[in-house]
């Protein structure tokens, strides 16, 4: 029982990161029906920029560890958002009226480009966030020791998601985003600047990915130029699992995927963990072809 509870918390911690990255996929998809394969690498970029900023401002030890973490997340989010904006302008906007798969290949190219650019700039070796920034206290819950940072990370990720949800549903700009997602043409007629709205989405999505990247760097310590691939694939799976284009769906999908992985590893097989996760995804899609919360029927090609 204790082990089950421990595994659930393990799964939720990983799942929160998946969910945070999945939001970027799902927002861009909801807007442009484009799978932004470069998103995982923007997440990696966020982690690396966080490390660079930490060194550049010599933040370590100057203030409280949590404040350092928060400052890094905010700065890295800003920079990666800018990169996301440029990516859309350069690689996706010219293709908006072409065949959808054209943009997918462009996104795949961008993904290869970013991961290799990071490798060239920082080297192929793992980079390491200096240890001891964050407190290492653990809190006991029902006889299970959970590191405080895990709980904070989980809360942080959920808070970011809720903020986004509030932003999309309770603000004027949010309504504009939803309007463009539903019908670009009609939104244009209503006086919404579709291009700016799309740019905004490309600021928010990669920004959230960068937040995930810094969190991973701060907590796990080790980052590598190609880590965006596995995180990206998992997050994309999570987005599909929840119903792509749907924000609560991405959150649910991410947390669920994390838990499935942890329980699969614990009670079936560690080596087959990812295969179990993908099998569950396929089974869910067979019975709910549009994911758990996806209501609309996927459009024809």
């Amino acid at each position: 029982m204790e082990e089950l509870f421990q595994q659930l918390t393990n799964g939720l911690a990983v799942g929160a990161i998946y969910a945070l990255i999945a939001l970027g996929y799902t927002m861009v998809y909801g807007m442009l029906r484009l799978i932004n394969f470069a998103h995982g690498d923007l997440f990696t970029l966020g982690a690396y920029l966080g490390l660079t900023l930490l060194a550049a401002f010599a933040l370590e030890g100057k203030m409280n560890g949590l404040a350092v973490g928060g400052a890094l997340i905010v700065m890295s989010m800003g920079l990666v958002a800018l990169v996301g904006y440029l990516l859309e302008r350069i690689a996706y906007r010219p293709l908006r009226n072409s065949n959808r798969l054209t943009a997918v290949v462009s996104a795949l190219g961008a993904s290869i480009f970013f991961s290799n650019a990071i490798m060239l700039a920082y080297g192929a070796r793992s980079q390491v966030y200096p240890g001891g920034i964050l407190p290492t206290t653990a809190i006991a819950f029902f006889g299970v020791e959970i590191p405080l940072m895990r709980i904070l990370m989980f809360i942080g990720a959920i808070a970011l998601m809720l903020a986004l949800y509030w932003f999309i549903h309770r603000t004027r700009i949010g309504s504009a985003i939803r309007a463009v997602a539903i019908d670009q043409g009609a939104a244009k007629l209503m006086g919404i600047n579709v291009n700016s709205v799309i740019s905004l989405v490309f600021l928010i999505g990669p920004g959230l990915g960068a937040a995930g990247g810094v969190m991973v760097g701060l907590y796990y310590g080790e980052i590598r130029y190609d880590m965006g691939f596995s995180f990206g694939l998992k997050a994309f799976t999570a987005a599909i699992l929840g119903g792509i284009g749907n924000i609560p769906g991405a959150m649910l999908g991410g947390l669920l995927l994390g838990v499935i992985e942890a329980l699969g590893a614990a009670y079936i097989s560690i080596a087959w963990k990812d295969a179990i996760a993908f099998t569950v995804l396929i089974l869910i899609l067979i019975f709910r072809p549009t994911g758990l919360l996806g209501e609309r029927v996927a459009d024809k090609l």
Binding site: G11, S230, A271
Partner: peptide, 16 residues
């Protein structure tokens, strides 16, 4: 058993 290299969180495996 085997872990999956390239991931960051191995706590599920360690718990097991």
């Amino acid at each position: 058993d085997a872990l999956t290299p390239g991931e960051r969180d191995y706590s599920a495996i360690l718990t097991k």
